[in-house]
Design a protein around this nucleic acid. Structure first.
Lengths: 141, 141
DNA sequence: TATTGTTATACTCTATAACTATA
DNA sequence: TATAGTTATAGAGTATAACAATA
């Protein structure tokens, strides 16, 4: 049996990494006053408005019932707009506001700084390869 | 702003990957009659007995109260032994049984097959690099 | 009747704290 | 008194189903 066969399962390696990343992100998000789901929504809306809440929910891998409280908070904080479509008043047209864009990008910048620290355990070439491969896997999904 | 700066956050790429892996693993685990935590315990015990339940819990990133039901199930199914240490009857000596070892390795083999399918979207060199880098990050933790 | 968004309910997971038995 | 294991309780997060408004 080769050493490769003895490696931990992918999930056993990836899951702790995700937990570590979440632990790193939570205080950053708290500093900027947004939740994890809120940041996820802002990220999805930055650059591309979305026509229905259900479509937004699917885009970020959530249930449509799960993001309603999040949208309420973001709207109350002035980070998104949520206006009924005049053509079909059942649907809500969702957009990020300038303030929402500012916050989203500030959060992303802080997260990127911490990610770089975390990846600094790797040689530069591996760092680049890891991100490139991860993007391939992500875009494939 | 370069394309690299526009990449999704690490967590945004890794989290869906973990969810996909879990979705792939759950039916495999069900086929073999073990839970995710059960498999995690069997993996930790395969090759190295553990002296206390608290140590085992910490090794797999769980709370000591969270694995008790799992240990009950594994013991009832004959996959582990849990015997009081004669030298200190508060502690339970935990070991995997031959049956537990068989099941653990069968599960791992099935999971590996599905992981390979998932990674088949990558060129062979990237596949090897991804796993190698992941192991570095994992062992660093 | 079908669809969008919303609310309500129940269920699962997890964390915290109390309890027991040994030391 | 301190520690290993256990049990009980409460809380957060999630999923399902029912509901209201609009088409």
């Amino acid at each position: 049996m080769s050493a490769e066969d003895e490696r931990p399962d992918l999930a056993a390696m990836l899951h702790p990494l995700v937990r570590e990343l979440i632990a790193v992100e939570l205080p950053i998000l708290a500093d900027h006053g947004v939740s994890m789901w809120g940041y996820s929504v802002l990220t999805a809306l930055d650059g591309t408005p979305v026509r229905t809440q259900a479509a937004l929910a699917e885009a970020i891998g959530a249930d449509k019932t799960r993001i309603i409280a999040t949208l309420d908070e973001l709207q109350d904080a002035g980070l998104i707009t949520r206006i009924p479509d005049p053509d079909d008043r059942r649907v809500r047209l969702l957009s990020i506001t300038p303030k929402g864009t500012r916050i989203r990008r500030a959060v992303r910048s802080d997260i990127r700084t911490r990610e770089d620290q975390l990846l600094s355990a790797l040689p530069a070439a591996d760092r680049r390869a890891f991100i490139r491969i991860l993007r391939t896997l992500h875009e494939r999904g």
